[in-house]
Amino acid sequence: MATEGHAPTASEYVIHHLTHLNNTGHAQENIIDWSVINIDSMFYSIVIGALTVFLLWLAARKATSGVPGRFQGIVEILVDMVADQAKGIVHSAESRRFVAPLALTVFVWIFLMNAMDLLPVDLLPRIWEGMYAAGGGDPAHAYMRVVATADLSAALGMSTGVLLLCLYYNIKIKGVGGWVHELFTAPFGSHPLLYPINFAMQIIEFVAKTVSHGMRLFGNMYAGELIFILIALLGSTATVFGFLGHVIAGSIWAIFHILIITLQAFIFMMLTLVYVGQAHESH
């Protein structure tokens, strides 16, 4: 870690940017530690989540069947898009009453959390360092990551939510008996010898779905964030090459990243609908 008095090295800079602000005050030491919570991820996801539902609520509050304004229009486009997708994937009107709004929330929420990546990579962390130093702390320990979806715990938290939804709908639609029967007889068929294999396959399927669902979002956003950090490092060399490199590469990557943040939010939403839809189907 950088100590006061000299600029951080490149590796210190990267590590500093990739360390979460958590309740322990230093980087988490174990891979899994349930006593640790990432304050920065929670702060940004809750603030952005509140902003998401506030914006949507703002549009819903004034929703009129007359001529819509621009803001209502764009929210309506989103709602219509999600409603259409949900209708095509989840074949239960009753389930859609919860799943479709959930998909909309997920899409907008993840999109906005991803969009935090487009802020200058040092902007919010530097402000936080200033505040932390003003409060008497060591700015080198003032960690802050602004992209909540680039936090594995947060991304897996959301995909675990989808897993719970899948389990819930499996039981609700098929009944406990029906679902247990499916766990042991699908995909290979009903034969006592096949029961363990079927069950193992089902467990693997659920785990793989959930992990890949969360990991895909996390991986994309983490990689994107890392590239922004590296581009910022290029600029920090304070040479003509570094400056031009920073401007050009930063612009290109930011423009490309607009596609990625939208795409990842869309993929997460679609997979949520697909997994919930699968929970409604019997093998």
Partner: peptide
């Protein structure tokens, strides 16, 4: 790393 953020995020 995995930590309690997962649970909190799930609730949110």
């Amino acid at each position: 790393n995995l930590n309690a953020t997962l649970i909190a995020q799930l609730v949110v």
